[in-house]
């Protein structure tokens, strides 16, 4: 359980809080350009479908009520609004890999910043849907302990940087894992579902 660092090498004195590295002072990398288009396309397509439904359903013969033209206007406004939010979100979204952790920021109205230390990542995987692949995008998913909500999915990376980030994270985890028996879980377990890793883990040593 304990690292095998020599006592002389290792010190752990208190660090004054103003000398701690501040996560707010780091410049974040913007997301890949195709993510703008992707985000707009997905949001726009969804709301356009809703808009089309609102516009067409009252014209069907067996629908007795007609909400009037204002509903179409309202839906058009919503479509524009959500597309705008998606665009601003894509502009604001950012990620960065520091020496010891990964920072990811997203959200427009509720702005969220998530920081995951490498030492706590249990495994990493990359994933992409068909539309993301069309735009050449890849998500990086990081899993830590702490239940369902502890999965972080970093969106908006192009395939090359996503692969690089994953590779880098895996190396970092391996380094951490090599000098301390962390969880008994093989840190190299990338691109596996948590279940698969778990069932494999009983037999591994």
């Amino acid at each position: 359980m304990t690292e095998t660092t020599e006592p002389s090498e290792f010190s752990n004195g208190p660090v004054p809080s103003d000398r701690l590295p501040d996560y707010r002072r780091v410049e974040l990398n913007p997301v890949a350009r195709p993510f703008y288009a992707y985000s707009l396309a997905v949001t726009g397509a969804f709301w356009l479908i809703v808009l089309a439904a609102v516009a067409w359903i009252p014209r069907l013969p067996f629908i007795p009520f007609d909400p009037g033209p204002w509903s179409v206007f309202a839906m058009s406004a919503a479509t524009i609004w959500f597309c705008l939010v998606a665009w601003i979100d894509a502009r604001r979204r950012g990620w960065v890999v520091r020496e010891h952790d990964l920072i990811y920021r997203y959200g427009v109205i509720w702005q969220k910043t998530v920081i995951v230390p490498f030492a706590r990542i249990q495994h990493v995987e990359t994933a992409s849907g068909p539309i993301e692949r069309l735009f050449g995008l890849l998500r990086v998913k990081c899993f830590t302990a702490g239940g369902m909500m502890a999965d972080l999915s970093v969106e908006g990376l192009d395939v090359r940087s996503a692969r690089r980030v994953r590779q880098y994270l895996l190396e970092q985890i391996r380094e951490e894992g090599s000098d301390s028996d962390r969880t008994g879980q093989a840190p190299a377990g990338d691109a596996q579902s948590p279940d698969a890793e778990e069932s494999g883990e009983h037999e591994s040593d």
């Binding site: 109205i109 702005q111 910043t113 920081i115 230390p117 702490g146 502890a150």
Partner: peptide, 8 residues
């Protein structure tokens, strides 16, 4: 394991 800061 993770730190999340959210601001409305």
């Amino acid at each position: 394991q993770q730190v999340r800061v959210t601001r409305g």
